[in-house]
Design a protein around this nucleic acid. Structure first.
Length: 225
DNA sequence: AACTCGGGGCA
DNA sequence: TGCCCAGAGTT
């Protein structure tokens, strides 16, 4: 997917490990109580929300799930609602046909294979329809307290732009981040990075003058206002 | 590696 | 109008 929106076609130098630590510690200070901005109240609604969030803004997803979860917030309730029923709540976000299909199929599979619970193992999660590596990483991080790094479009862009973690695809960037970020900071780094990428290190017109870590950033086109 | 799904937000 | 959005599945 993602290689087109790096917003820099110039060569970027990788950060040193010292710079990586400095960068992460600055982001931690910037956003001390970072958490997901998606709307969820359980591992199941988290899973559904993340599946729905693919290539959509979280504001549009939250608008849909706010209504949907009021009607159906468990696998059996979603299955009872059916694809058409789910679709009527989520057709304001893109990819809604496939997402309606996946959410119902995923819920059916949870009931049939996992007693209606969200599994805490990567393999079982990625076997669910509509769930790939990124979604599994988010669920493992938030619902199962694991130090995974879920790389979305924001983190991919930020990693390549700043030199924090270079890679041609999301998996390469994920591995670089896991390898380079201090272990004790890895789990929360997911939240710090995604929020920083979203509000400051933006795809268009990054607001580098607001960034607490420009001193260690290798982005050649810094927008310092 | 490239293609497809996709409506809404925003400049 | 064109770009971008808390990606995944298929060819």
């Amino acid at each position: 997917m993602v290689t087109k929106n790096i917003a820099s076609d110039q060569k970027v130098k990788a950060m040193s490990l010292v710079e990586v630590r400095t960068f992460i510690e600055h982001l931690a200070k910037e956003n001390p109580d970072a958490k997901s901005e998606l709307n969820y109240t359980s591992p199941y609604t988290l899973l559904v929300a993340v599946v729905l969030s693919a290539q959509a803004t979280d504001a549009s997803v939250n608008k849909a799930t706010e209504k949907l979860f009021k009607v159906a917030s468990t696998p059996s309730e979603i299955v009872a609602l059916g694809e058409e029923g789910v679709a009527q709540y989520i057709n304001s976000i893109g990819l809604w046909r496939a997402k309606s299909r996946n959410v119902v199929a995923l819920s059916t599979q949870l009931l049939e294979q996992h007693d209606g619970n969200v599994p805490g193992e990567r393999q079982a999660l990625e076997a669910l329809p509509g769930v790939g590596r990124k979604t599994a990483n988010v669920v493992l991080n938030i619902a199962f307290n694991q130090s995974t790094m879920a790389v979305d479009t924001h983190i991919f862009r930020l990693g390549n732009r700043t030199g924090l973690a270079l890679g041609k695809d999301v998996l390469a960037v994920e591995k670089a981040l896991v390898r380079r970020i201090p272990k004790d900071l890895l789990r929360d780094s997911h939240h710090w990075l995604i929020l920083h990428g979203r509000y400051i290190c933006k795809a268009r017109k990054p607001e580098c003058w607001r960034c607490p870590a420009t001193i260690v950033c290798h982005y050649p086109n810094k927008n310092l206002g």
